[in-house]
Simulated scan of single mutants.
Amino acid sequence: MGDDRCVAGTRGKQTVRDMILSLAAIGVVVAAVYFFIPHNDSPSAEQKAVQTVDYRVEVATARRAAPYPVAVPKGLPESWRATSVSYKASNDGKGGAWHLGMLDPEQEYAAIEQSDAPAAKFIKDVTLGAEKAEGKQAVGGAKWDRYKGEKYNALVREEPGVTTVVTGTAPYGRLAELAASLEAKKG
């Protein structure tokens, strides 16, 4: 009976020893993967991780399809990068929506949103619920309404037949810079 306890005690020590050796082997493999697989932790890596899109084809399509002049930036520095683009037509010819998402030079998000849908609902949707704020923003020769929200700020211009919203996480100055670059054309 004494021998059984001795064997059981040895087995317990071997099991713990084997487990520690297994964990050490796994640790060596993980370290090798980390050191030998290329990765980039530099600040510019985050900037390069977001895909830049070419929006020329979508602009031409939207300008032909939209019942309003579609606005796109003209003359912005290359440090502004387009990251998303879409035009969604509506079934009844009203409420078509143009979207062009961008990153500004500080990697803040800014988007151009346009639609001929009812303005109040459209503004609320694209600004993620931002509320009209005090004051106006001078953009070129026009005054745009300011909106402030938890996630997005926005500059809004309502014209007959179209509402243009420049919105995002970028500060008002950057949103104004984007708004000032807009050129609206019908295709």
Rank of each mutant, 00 (worst) to 15 (best):
88 K>G: 15
138 A>V: 14
131 E>G: 10
98 W>L: 06
155 L>K: 02
84 S>M: 03
129 G>R: 07
122 F>H: 10
131 E>H: 04
146 R>T: 07
142 A>L: 07
141 G>V: 05
127 T>S: 09
97 A>M: 11
141 G>T: 07
127 T>H: 08
127 T>W: 06
127 T>M: 04
83 T>N: 04
146 R>G: 11
147 Y>N: 05
94 K>R: 13
83 T>W: 05
157 R>C: 09
123 I>N: 00
84 S>L: 06
97 A>S: 13
129 G>I: 12
129 G>M: 09
103 L>G: 00
107 Q>M: 14
143 K>G: 07
97 A>W: 02
92 D>A: 11
116 D>C: 06
153 N>W: 01
95 G>H: 05
132 K>G: 15
135 G>C: 09
137 Q>W: 13
93 G>A: 03
113 E>T: 00
142 A>W: 01
139 V>I: 05
105 P>H: 03
110 A>M: 10
92 D>Q: 08
120 A>C: 04
121 K>P: 01
87 Y>G: 13
138 A>Y: 10
92 D>H: 08
93 G>K: 00
158 E>T: 04
117 A>R: 10
149 G>V: 14
97 A>R: 06
121 K>Q: 13
107 Q>A: 15
153 N>Q: 14
128 L>G: 03
84 S>H: 05
128 L>R: 06
118 P>H: 14
157 R>H: 07
92 D>F: 01
150 E>S: 13
121 K>A: 15
124 K>R: 12
124 K>S: 09
